[in-house]
Simulated scan of single mutants.
Amino acid sequence: MINKRVISAAIALPILLFFVLRGGIAFTIGVLAITAIALYEYICVYKNTNHKVIFFPILIGYFLNAYSVIISNKNVIIPAILLVVITSMATPIFAKKYNVVSSALTITGYIYIVVFFSMLIYIIQAPNGSTLIWLVFIIAFGTDTFAYYSGRFFGRTKLCPEVSPKKTVEGSIGGILGSILGVSLWGYINPHINFHWYQLIMMGTVGSIISQIGDLSASLIKRYAGVKDYGNIMPGHGGILDRFDSILFTAPVVYYYIVLFLG
């Protein structure tokens, strides 16, 4: 019998390729859709805890952000963040079922999911964006794949057992090397993008480390909430947040690398 994880990947990969290769409004709609699903998963994961995410502010933030990316105007982001922060912190004053932790979870969820996912859209909207966007997936998936096999064959030293018992230092190093290899290969294939080799190696290194922190951060939330997965939309993988946790942290790294080095 074919593993459910393999079947899910076989279905998800063509869908991912379709939206990335189409770009434009198709890619924007695709990202907004998975952002909405990820938000739902994030809100639901805290339902069995003593602290709840405040729905109204995060919903306002989502629609403002959607408006921002559709009209390609980043100036909406700061007012959206301010509005989410103010409404999130004001709500517990009037609704006693929420508290200051609810405010913190709401603000964190908005930035972590809505703002970070939007970075994918801003990358593809940049000059050469249809080429640059692959850096996010190369770093995240390269790190995951090489970390898995490096840990499986060479793993001895636990990396962070209280958060993720199976992850090892050797696996982490393998993930970094895999990311550097993938980014370097991307640079070789795309010499017209004016990244120097040292910039690519640095991006692969920093991106991989941040990607792994994203993975561990998502695991930390699940451990706190007492759940194995964020959802079951992708059998064998879990929810959107289970599959995109490392991508969420990688996207801002790539975006600001582009801003810093390519203008």
Score class of each variant (00 low, 15 high):
42 Y>K: 09
34 I>E: 11
49 T>H: 13
240 I>L: 08
160 C>I: 07
93 I>A: 15
261 F>Y: 14
224 Y>Q: 08
91 T>D: 11
56 F>Q: 13
188 Y>M: 15
215 D>N: 07
144 D>T: 00
144 D>F: 00
258 I>M: 09
55 F>L: 15
79 P>I: 04
133 I>P: 01
167 K>C: 05
147 A>V: 03
100 V>C: 12
174 G>R: 08
108 T>R: 08
134 W>H: 06
22 R>W: 12
228 K>M: 04
52 K>Y: 11
3 N>Q: 03
112 Y>M: 14
184 S>D: 14
52 K>S: 15
204 G>D: 09
174 G>E: 02
140 A>M: 05
240 I>P: 01
144 D>K: 00
52 K>H: 12
122 Y>Q: 08
185 L>G: 06
121 I>C: 03
3 N>D: 13
2 I>Q: 07
73 N>P: 07
90 A>W: 13
61 G>L: 02
61 G>V: 00
196 H>V: 12
122 Y>I: 07
189 I>G: 03
53 V>D: 02
210 I>N: 12
66 A>L: 09
180 I>K: 06
203 M>H: 11
156 R>V: 04
193 I>R: 04
80 A>I: 09
17 L>N: 01
204 G>A: 07
79 P>W: 05
106 T>M: 02
77 I>L: 15
29 I>N: 01
116 F>H: 06
141 F>D: 00
44 C>P: 00
126 A>R: 15
167 K>H: 02
247 I>H: 05
183 V>L: 05
163 V>A: 01
229 D>H: 06
86 I>H: 14
113 I>R: 05
33 A>I: 14
14 P>N: 03
92 P>C: 03
113 I>N: 10
100 V>A: 15
140 A>C: 11
181 L>S: 06
248 L>H: 11
178 G>Y: 01
224 Y>E: 14
37 I>G: 02
250 T>H: 11
249 F>E: 01
167 K>W: 10
48 N>S: 13
174 G>V: 04
53 V>F: 05
221 I>D: 13
5 R>Q: 08
18 F>N: 06
100 V>G: 12
46 Y>S: 09
182 G>L: 04
89 M>K: 06
209 I>A: 12
151 G>S: 10
64 L>I: 15
101 V>G: 03
135 L>K: 08
167 K>D: 07
147 A>Y: 03
210 I>K: 12
234 M>H: 00
42 Y>H: 14
219 S>E: 06
106 T>P: 03
